[in-house]
Simulated assay, not measured.
Amino acid sequence: MCSFKKALALLLVLWQAVAQASGYVDVLDLPARPSALAVRSPLLDVTSAGQRLVAVGQRGHILYSDDDGKQWQQASVPVSSDLNAVYFPTPEQGWAVGNDGVVLHSSDAGATWKKQLDGRQIGALSVKHYAALAAADPDNEQWPLRVADGQRLVEEGADKPLLDLWFADDKLGYVVGVFNLILRTEDGGQNWTPFQDRTDNPQNFHLNAITSTGDGLYIAGEQGLLLKWDDAAQRFAAVQTPYQGSFFGVVGKPGEALVYGLRGNVLRSTDGGLSWTPFDSGLQVSVTAATVDAQGHYRMFSQAGHMLVARDDSPRLQLVPQQNPSPVAGAALAADGSLVLVGTRGARALLEQ
């Protein structure tokens, strides 16, 4: 997740602390307000739901477009928490996550949403789950520590952002967030299992993004943390890379993966994550979003609004000039093959370049 997304998340936490003193209604209980300006307000992610595009952002705004991003409608959302990511494994079934540990679900391609989970429940889930493991395995010293971590979540309240999510289908999925927060569902979000013990992340670094490249499921995190799902071990195992700065995302296709992050750093692997080589971006600002375009080329975007494209087997990303660039937080391929971007200025369709 990009740095300005984190800043927005932290600002909301501070705002809530002040507002609580004045008797406000919790954003987890306050439906998002309809706004004609929602399409131009900060949006943090966009994805496709079949032929439809769905974008999420501040104050619980969720927008959807059925004409490749030209016009947008606002969805019905039961919370006003900032939303950080959205994903649809099928054209109808989708999930969104955000601040306050919120998980939302839609079964109608993003037109309406229901809350499945929030930060007021996650701590108690962790305590219950790890207490049961401690009772079954009293000699394992990690379980009491996990119980204590869950209890801290209970005491601190619903202030832990979820930053990203990924679903294999309409049943199996993961949500990830700050301080190694990760949960898994196998029934479409009806039940969630804490998964903090299934990551090689002893320092509890933030989990910024989770992505499948088609033949590998990766989690990108801060301070060089990169994890990959190990099916035999049933855990997210650490992947070694030559960069120790924060990663904000992974993009790829079968046989290839690119991880990107701070200061324009992009690394490429063609051997399932066993080795990584620098992919020259020519930038010194963070790469914050990426996707694959209709021609199969990687498109990457920076927090300053740069667009980079990787064509053929070139080891260098090519800078594509932009008019009036603005920070990009998310990018998606529309049904007509065009690209739609979201960021601090809302949603916009990218002209063919």
Rank of each mutant, 00 (worst) to 15 (best):
V79P: 02
V340D: 09
N208D: 06
R198N: 11
E155L: 14
G216K: 08
L117K: 00
L10K: 04
R59V: 10
S281G: 03
A75I: 09
H306M: 05
D313N: 15
G249K: 02
K253W: 10
L44P: 12
Q121I: 12
K114G: 11
D312W: 03
H61Q: 14
Q196N: 14
N140L: 11
W15L: 10
P31M: 08
D197I: 12
A332Q: 03
A7V: 11
V328S: 02
P254Q: 05
D197L: 11
Q190D: 06
R299T: 01
F88R: 03
N265R: 09
V285C: 09
A85T: 05
W15S: 14
Y218W: 13
G60Y: 00
T288D: 03
F248V: 03
E155H: 13
A334G: 02
N84A: 01
V86A: 00
L117R: 01
A96H: 13
G57A: 02
R311M: 10
D164S: 14
A111C: 09
H61I: 05
G119F: 08
F236V: 10
T112S: 08
N208I: 07
G98E: 09
D271N: 15
D68F: 01
V259F: 03
D187H: 04
Q318Y: 08
K171M: 04
L274P: 09
A32H: 11
H105N: 07
G245K: 12
V309N: 01
L53D: 07
V77C: 04
S3A: 06
L283Y: 07
A237Q: 13
L341T: 11
E141V: 15
A21D: 15
L319H: 14
A38E: 05
R120L: 05
Y260P: 01
A111K: 07
A304H: 09
N204Y: 04
K115T: 02
S286P: 02
G50I: 10
Q223N: 05
K114D: 14
K160I: 07
I210Q: 08
L341Y: 05
P325D: 00
D280G: 08
A111R: 03
V251R: 00
E256A: 10
L183T: 03
D29F: 12
W276E: 13
P327A: 11
L339P: 09
S76P: 06
R299C: 05
A17F: 10
A335F: 00
V342Y: 02
W95A: 05
V178W: 09
